[in-house]
């Protein structure tokens, strides 16, 4: 087999990067930087939530639980929907019973009766993992069981997680929990098993109102990318420096 110069250079670079890896760990080289040298990809998964379109039906939560085998009646969930009720006096009430799985049929919010005339505005906000560009959950895992793929999706290796819960404490969005059956850290994966087959995430498919969209942020023609680039969107808790990649249309300042 003839080796082209290009192949040769590639091997050399790879070798150099691999041998530099342990050193890289000490230099706080982010896994991303190390990887970028070896492989590059033209996919970066991102998410778009249109809060104006969400009616709080909870179909996404149901679909997610069934698709990803999170015990249906456990209060923990990979994605959830929050209801916010802002009163005319400025007070904020919010809840998410069972993660909004069964919709919001109860009039009471936070066990309070709220007369409709007192309400200034009310809305629903779906939540899921932000697949942060700078994920603190990956940073703190002592054994490297939680990691970020080249396409940005953060995953947990169930066969390697020791169940310390450090990542759960480190995520500012309360996305993570212990899987009731596997007893390891669990989180939203953007249904990566579906994405790689060219499908949508289960929640996107389940939403009858198109409030959720998933897309490739590196593709300028992707509908999600177009909205993120051209319209006014916001992310959750940017102050933590996590660089979330789930974008929200119509995010209210009251949203936590």
């Amino acid at each position: 087999m003839r080796q082209t110069r290009r192949d040769f250079l590639k091997t050399i670079t790879r070798g150099a990067v691999v041998s530099a890896l342990p050193l890289g760990a000490f230099k706080f080289l982010s896994p991303k930087e190390a990887r970028a040298a070896v492989e590059s990809t033209n996919v970066r998964w991102g998410f778009l939530v249109d809060t104006y379109k969400c009616v709080g039906c909870g179909f996404c939560v149901k679909a997610c639980k069934l698709e990803n085998e999170v015990p249906y009646d456990a209060p923990v969930t990979r994605t959830w929907v929050e209801r916010y009720v802002i009163l005319k006096n400025g007070k904020m009430l919010a809840d998410t019973p069972m993660g909004g799985r069964d919709g919001f049929t109860e009039q009471k919010v936070q066990e309070q009766d709220v007369p409709p005339k007192d309400i200034a505005k009310a809305f629903f906000v779906p939540k899921l993992c932000n697949q942060c560009e700078n994920p603190p959950c990956v940073q703190v895992c002592p054994v490297g069981a939680t990691y970020q793929r080249a396409d940005g999706v953060v995953l947990v290796d169930r066969s390697w997680c020791i169940g310390c819960g450090y990542c759960i404490m480190a995520c500012p969005y309360g996305v993570r929990f212990f899987h009731p059956v596997y007893r390891t850290a669990e989180k939203c994966t953007f249904c990566i098993h579906r994405l790689v087959k060219g499908m949508n995430t289960a929640c996107v498919d389940a939403c009858p109102f198109g409030a959720r969209k998933v897309g490739n942020l590196k593709d300028p023609n992707d509908p999600v990318t177009k909205v993120v680039l051209n319209e006014r969107v916001a992310v959750l808790k940017p102050e933590y420096g996590t660089k979330p990649q789930a974008f929200y249309i119509g995010l209210d300042e009251n949203v936590r």
Partner: peptide, 27 residues
């Protein structure tokens, strides 16, 4: 009946608005 075991559910009492996955994980 919840399948499996939800860690933290037995010793955490939630009040007002708390995310669904939040429990006292470090006890």
């Amino acid at each position: 009946m919840i399948e499996g075991y939800v860690h933290g559910i037995e010793w955490t009492i939630k009040e007002l608005f708390v995310y669904p996955n939040e429990f006292i994980y470090w006890s």
